[in-house]
């Protein structure tokens, strides 16, 4: 045993094999294999591809959430921002915009601004992130009801439609978008000074500030990113659904936080990676699909979903004691 673990390569291999992202991935694969034996069609390529496509929406929302949680905060307004994005896109359309790109950019600018306002409240007014983002969510929900009322809105936007339905080279555009965002997020998180500041801020804000980390601007950026990725998820969900309505983003609040935590990111901040959130998001849609297969009533589905998330968290290791 020692000969293997002592070599540098062996140590690295062991570090990867025992890491939380890998563990989460292993659980996903195990569940997929078990489920395809239990239920015909579950393991079909088309079905698995569909699961990953659904996971893309959670994965996008959870990308921003991962940043916020690592920085020591939490964003409870992501669901409302997804809805804002899906509903305001049809409202922000111009004749002189045949591809729909301009309105998508306008919506993303809007949701990013909402995130930055969250950041302002947290960094400058020193409102607790939970209160600030929850208040923001409530505010946005009220605004949406006034603007959209109870009716669903339909988007006639080429780009949005393409994102939700096109399959270049057989791969859904939503998955491609998720891959692109994942590469960007992982680079930003682990290969730039900005990413290092976020980890430092989450682990010990006082020490980070005394080391010269600009706390205010970093906080604004982190919540801004969360607003941006939630907005992107809203655009994708609108494309996949064809219609936007109040409440379309609701499932993504718990899902985004669960994906982050299932992926091994510390809810206390300072430790974690988006590489864990990605399998975390896929694991969540897989569970949802399994519960649908079981054919339970909606009440029992929710109960099963909640219990399974708790069980998985216990299984994949709780927060280890710090210091």
């Amino acid at each position: 045993m020692t000969a293997w673990t002592d070599s540098a390569g062996g140590r690295r291999a062991r570090a990867i094999l025992t890491s939380r992202p890998f563990l989460t991935l292993a659980i996903v694969v195990a569940v997929w294999i078990a489920a395809s034996f239990a239920s015909r069609g579950f393991g079909a390529y088309g079905h698995l591809r569909y699961l990953v496509e659904l996971g893309a929406v959670i994965g996008l929302v959870a990308a921003g959430q991962t940043f916020v949680v690592i920085a020591g905060g939490i964003d409870l307004s992501v669901a409302a921002i997804v809805t804002v994005s899906a509903i305001s896109l049809p409202l922000l359309s111009w004749q002189a915009d045949p591809t729909g790109l301009a309105s998508v950019l306008a919506v993303l600018a809007l949701t990013t601004a909402i995130g930055v306002i969250n950041g302002l409240g947290v960094a400058l007014l020193r409102v607790h992130p939970m209160i600030m983002t929850l208040a923001m969510a409530t505010f946005l929900q009220g605004l949406l009801i006034i603007i959209a009322g109870g009716s669903a809105v339909t988007a006639e936007n080429l780009l949005v439609h393409w994102l939700g339905n096109a399959r270049p080279a057989g791969i859904p555009a939503g998955i491609l978008l998720w891959i692109a965002v994942s590469v960007l997020v992982l680079t930003l998180m682990h290969a730039t000074p900005f990413g290092a500041r976020i980890f430092a801020m989450g682990a010990n804000p006082l020490a980070a500030s005394l080391s010269g980390v600009p706390i205010t601007s970093t906080t604004l950026a982190v919540y801004g990113i969360s607003g941006f990725t939630a907005g992107l998820a809203g655009v994708l969900v609108l494309g996949m659904n064809g219609q936007g309505y109040v409440g379309i983003g609701d499932p993504y609040l718990l899902a985004s936080i669960a994906a982050v935590v299932l992926g091994g990111t510390s809810i206390l901040g300072g430790l974690g990676t988006y590489a864990g959130t990605i399998p975390g998001a896929i694991l969540l849609v897989t569970i949802t699909a399994l519960i649908t297969v079981v054919n339970a009533s909606p009440g029992w589905r929710s109960i099963l979903f909640g219990s399974l998330i708790l069980g998985l968290l216990l299984l994949s290791g709780r927060e280890r004691a710090r210091r």
Partner: peptide, 8 residues
């Protein structure tokens, strides 16, 4: 508390 990030 102020100087280091102990978990890093």
């Amino acid at each position: 508390r102020e100087g280091l990030h102990l978990i890093h």
